[in-house]
C-alpha cells in the first residue's frame, strides 16, 4: 500500500488517502509544522539549546530526533548532538513475548554527562517506554536534566510521566490505535488513527502497519 504513496504531501500536492479503516490525523505539512514548533520550544526552554543532546527511541523516534536537530541548526545555527537509545533490554514486558530483536543505541561523542538530554519518540501512550528509557539513561551517564518530546500524546498513561514537548495532543479510545508513518521508514509522512492493535485488544489480529506506534 505504501509503495504507491510515495508522494510526501508537501507543497500543493494533495495528501495521499489514508488506508481503509484509518483516518489521517496529521499530514506531512502538519508534522513539519509541529516539529518546527517543538524545535523552537526546545531552544526557548534550554536557553538557546546549550548542552542539549537529542536521543531518539527506535525505530521512529530516531528520524524524528534527526529532523529536530536539522531544524534547531536552521534556527539557531547550532549543531546539537543526536543519538539513539534502544530500550528493548530495559522493557518491563520482555517476558510476555518472544525475545525481540534489538535496535541501535548510539551515544553521541562527548557522552551524556551534564547534558540536557531530550528523549524523542513518536507516540506517548502508557509511558512504559519512557520509563525504560530513563532506566537505560541511568546506565549510560548522568545528564543534567532529561526532557521528553513526542509527536503524538494519545493519553492513557499508566505511569506518572508527562511530555515536555508535544506535537499534537490526540485524545483516543483504547479501541483505537495510532500509527506514525515517516518518510525515512515508511516512504511518507502521516499520523493515522485506526483500529487498535493486539496490545489494547487482546486476541485481535496483529496488523503490520501499526507496529510502529510506540507505547
Amino acid at each position: 500500500m505504501r509503495a504507491h504513496d510515495n508522494a510526501k504531501g508537501g507543497g500543493g500536492a494533495p495528501p495521499p488517502p489514508a488506508p481503509e479503516g484509518y483516518r489521517t490525523v496529521l499530514d506531512g505539512p502538519e508534522i513539519d509544522r509541529a516539529l518546527t514548533r517543538i524545535a523552537h520550544e526546545v531552544l526557548e526552554r534550554t536557553k538557546g539549546g546549550r548542552d542539549v543532546a537529542l536521543l531518539g527511541i527506535p525505530s521512529r523516534g530516531v528520524p524524528l530526533a534527526r529532523r529536530l536537530a536539522e531544524r534547531i541548526e536552521r534556527v539557531e545555527d547550532l549543531r546539537v548532538p543526536v543519538g539513539s537509545l534502544d530500550i528493548t533490554m530495559y522493557r518491563d514486558d520482555l517476558r510476555l513475548a518472544p525475545a525481540r530483536a534489538l535496535g541501535r543505541t548510539e551515544i553521541p561523542d562527548g557522552g551524556l554527562d551534564d547534558h540536557v538530554v531530550v528523549l524523542v519518540d513518536d507516540v506517548l501512550f502508557s509511558g512504559r517506554t519512557v520509563r525504560a528509557a530513563l532506566d537505560a539513561l541511568g546506565d549510560l551517564g548522568r545528564p543534567r536534566a532529561v526532557q521528553l518530546a513526542v509527536l503524538v500524546d494519545r493519553g492513557h498513561r499508566e505511569l506518572p510521566i508527562r511530555a515536555d514537548y508535544v506535537g499534537k495532543n490526540l485524545p483516543t479510545s483504547l479501541r483505537e490505535g495510532v500509527t506514525v508513518c515517516l518518510a525515512e521508514n515508511d516512504g511518507r509522512d502521516a499520523v493515522l488513527l485506526g483500529p487498535a492493535r493486539d496490545r489494547a485488544r487482546p486476541g485481535a489480529e496483529r496488523r503490520p502497519e501499526t507496529e510502529g506506534a510506540g507505547s
Binding site: 533490554m89 520482555l94 517476558r95 510476555l96 513475548a97 518472544p98 525475545a99 525481540r100
Partner: peptide, 8 residues
Amino acid sequence: LYLLLGGS
C-alpha cells in the same frame, strides 16, 4: 542467553 531466556 538473551534470545533463549529473555522472552516468554
